[in-house]
Simulated assay, not measured.
Amino acid sequence: MSEPGGPGQRPEEQWPPYSYPQHQPYPQQHQYPPWQPPVPPKKASPAAVVLVSGSAVVVILMTLAFLAWGYPGFLRDPDVKTLPGISPGGSATLASPTPTITTPSTPVALPGGRAPMPKRTKPLANPVTCAFTPDSGSPAPKKVALPPDGPAPSSGTAEVRLATSAGDIGLTLDRALAPCTVVNFLSLAKQGFYDGTSCHRLSVTAGLQMLQCGDPVGDGTGGPGYTIRDEVFPELTYGRGVLAMAKTNQPDSGGSQFFLVYGEINIPPEYTVFGSIDDAGLEVVDKVARGGIDQSKPGIGDGSGPPKIPVKFTHVTTP
């Protein structure tokens, strides 16, 4: 490649003449600029103050909203006795996450008929030994005696009738499924524990269709002042017509709360099944389910809440 100036030739290099800098006189020592009074900082305008304050308030409110609703159950009572499944937060661990209670715009679809009752593939020993544990952390506005510890039969059934403001609900308690849970339920009923209590939670959500009852406090936090052991097994299934115990998300935390399944329900085999609902009782629960959720009352934030048609127990008839 040829350099500029023709082939084989280098352009004549030109150097600018060197010029020596002239010496400048040194500035006089210790001369400072005259003193000037400090200038006060400018005051922020009222509009700027309002803008900054408003932004801070918005950030604080957004942070609180995130903590309260960003994680289901973050600011909720961990001991609430609810059901689980689609994810009730709390006690029975029957389902929780939707942040608002909603009532379906169309009537609740009920499957009709009844689901087969679960059965143990391996029968329990007969009798079994029951034990009940006092629980000082569970609100118990109704004081009751603990059921008796000791042997209990694991065969046979017991017929119970719940007289309620919505109609009578017949139950068949099955000792082969959960003998100690049956002992507990009969003990509470005979002491009048359920009289005057109401079913506090109706869920009409697909996958969690049940009515929850048995809380003397009425908000899902109450119990009898003691806990009972879970009586579960891997083959447990839940469906229309099943009667089961509610509990917290901890094992062996049931007490007095139970739920009546009237439709579809998808929950793990962690809730003791101890009986079934008769046909007349299912019709009562169906009527309550069709009535929907009372949105004027607080729920637990998972799409469930108090039923519009009240279900208040007036008396429980036991053998």
Rank of each mutant, 00 (worst) to 15 (best):
R10P: 00
L202R: 07
T121Q: 10
E231L: 13
G263W: 03
P123W: 08
K143F: 11
R10I: 06
P127E: 04
G137K: 05
S2H: 11
A95R: 01
W69I: 14
S96G: 12
I101G: 07
C199N: 06
T221Y: 03
P17V: 08
S155I: 14
L146E: 05
G5T: 04
P251G: 01
F185M: 11
P153C: 07
P134G: 06
Q295V: 15
D278W: 06
W15R: 15
V261K: 01
G275M: 11
V217I: 12
K247I: 00
S53E: 00
G5K: 09
P84A: 10
G214C: 06
L202C: 09
R10K: 13
K122E: 14
A176R: 15
E13I: 12
T205E: 10
T82H: 09
L75G: 02
T227Q: 06
Q29E: 14
F274R: 10
T172Q: 13
E159C: 02
A178V: 12
P118D: 11
R290V: 13
V39T: 13
T314L: 08
T248K: 03
L94Q: 09
E270H: 09
G222Q: 04
V52F: 08
I309R: 10
S96K: 05
G223Y: 00
L124G: 03
G292V: 10
S165T: 12
I277Q: 00
G239E: 05
E270S: 03
P25S: 15
K142C: 10
S96L: 01
A176D: 14
K308S: 14
L61R: 05
S304H: 05
N184H: 02
Y26D: 13
C199T: 04
Q14G: 14
S154M: 12
A145S: 14
I101A: 13
S2L: 12
G220D: 08
V80E: 10
D149P: 01
F313L: 13
G73A: 03
G214S: 04
V261F: 01
D219W: 10
T63P: 05
A244H: 07
L188Y: 08
S155F: 13
K312M: 08
G292R: 06
G85W: 12
N126K: 08
M117S: 15
